[in-house]
Amino acid sequence: MNKFTPTAMNKFTPAKPAGARSVDDITGSRRLRRMRKADWSRRLVQENRLTVDDLIWPIFVVDGRQVREPIAAMPGVFRLSIDLAVKEAERAAKLGIPALATFPNVDISLRDQTGSHILDPDNVINRATRAIKDAVPEIGIITDAALDPFTSHGHDGILRDGIIVNDETVEQVSAAAVIQAAAGADIIAPSDMMDGRIGAIRDALDANGFQEVAIMSYATKFASAFYGPYREAVGTAGLLKGDKKTYYIDHANSDEAVREAEQDIAEGADMLMVKPGLPYLDIIRRLKDEFQMPTFAYQVSGEYSMIKAAGANGWIDGEKAMLESLLAFKRAGCDGILTYFAPEVATMLKG
């Protein structure tokens, strides 16, 4: 096509009112489309890039051997026994994925009101950490010290008379963090949202010789509708009574999220996380601008499942939507993303 002019687009150009300016007059030499005209030029000026180094892969671990249980609400995601989790860790390392985040599905017989099984050094999450570290020492392991996979009620804390008690929960979460660090966890990422937990975990880790173990704070975890498939994955969906609004952040509040992050930084957090991801890009941008801290997003199960379902039904291009959503996190200011798409994306990026 010839150089753009207003008349090149229309056979008949209406007469302009006296004194009206043409497109050329308005834009002058400023034509942003010049750098969009070819693939090479678009790549040359691209502001944000997604790389394999941005990916953290969450996986679900169960007891047994050769167990690969599909999760109905999360197509392509499985609960894995430790032996298969090790094989997936080896695959992740070969793809260049820097770290895994492990989450347990614990048999109901091991759950109680206080989530005491989290304090067992030989529970499934700690055994998985040791096994993965033995086989793939170069990959990072991130563990969650929250109690919800271990409680009989599905809440993230100890339940007393219908109330999640803060300080008793923090004491148990801190003890669990030390046990997880002893098993080989590189980063403790407590998701329970109890007040004071970051400082208590930092003190407990330091007192037990784990000064080098980092803390990724779920600083802004919102009371969200996007967690449903995850709760199926860890086995709490049928247990949970009520909601978690007394300790997760109201999704209407952004100033409160900033205060939460500021408090966690003061208590010793090394990294911040925003959860969920896509509905909270504004929070990611605010935290990055405010604190200039390493900032991560968790593209949670509901986000993953929506893209998968819409792609499977042909309503969207699932692959393109996946990549676009992940790049949105980078554009908002994320240094990395926890995503169930990690191995799929890493394979594409390497290819």
Rank of each mutant, 00 (worst) to 15 (best):
K3H: 06
F4I: 10
T7S: 15
N10M: 13
R21A: 12
T27V: 13
G28W: 13
G28A: 10
R34T: 13
R34K: 14
K37P: 00
K37Q: 14
R42A: 12
R43P: 01
V45W: 12
V52K: 09
D53W: 02
D54V: 00
P58L: 06
I59S: 09
F60Y: 15
V61L: 08
V62F: 07
D63K: 06
V67P: 00
V67M: 10
M74R: 04
G76N: 11
V77D: 07
R79Q: 15
D83W: 05
L84S: 10
A85D: 08
A85V: 02
E88K: 11
E90A: 13
K94M: 05
L95D: 03
A99Y: 10
L110Q: 09
Q113T: 14
I118K: 06
D120L: 03
D122Y: 05
N126C: 15
A128Y: 01
I132Q: 04
A135W: 05
V136R: 00
P137D: 09
E138A: 14
E138R: 13
I141M: 04
F150Q: 00
F150H: 14
F150S: 11
T151V: 07
L159I: 10
D161K: 14
G162Y: 11
I163C: 09
I163N: 13
N166G: 06
D167C: 07
T169R: 03
Q172W: 01
S174Y: 02
I179L: 15
A185D: 03
I198P: 00
A200D: 07
I201N: 08
I201A: 10
L205T: 07
G209V: 14
E212P: 00
E212L: 04
S217D: 05
S217Q: 06
S217K: 08
Y218A: 04
F226W: 14
G228F: 11
P229S: 12
Y230I: 08
G238R: 06
L240R: 12
K241F: 04
T246S: 15
I249M: 13
H251I: 02
V258C: 12
R259D: 09
D264R: 10
I265F: 06
E267N: 11
V274D: 06
P276L: 10
G277A: 15
L278P: 00
Y280R: 09
I283F: 09
R286M: 10
K288D: 05
D289H: 07
E290G: 01
F291T: 02
M293L: 12
P294N: 07
P294C: 05
F296C: 03
V300A: 08
V300C: 10
K308Q: 15
K308P: 00
A309M: 13
A309E: 09
A310P: 01
G311R: 05
W315Y: 13
L326G: 09
L327C: 10
K330P: 02
C334Q: 12
I337C: 11
I337E: 07
Y340L: 13
P343E: 08
P343N: 07
M348I: 14
K350Y: 01
K350R: 15
G351H: 05
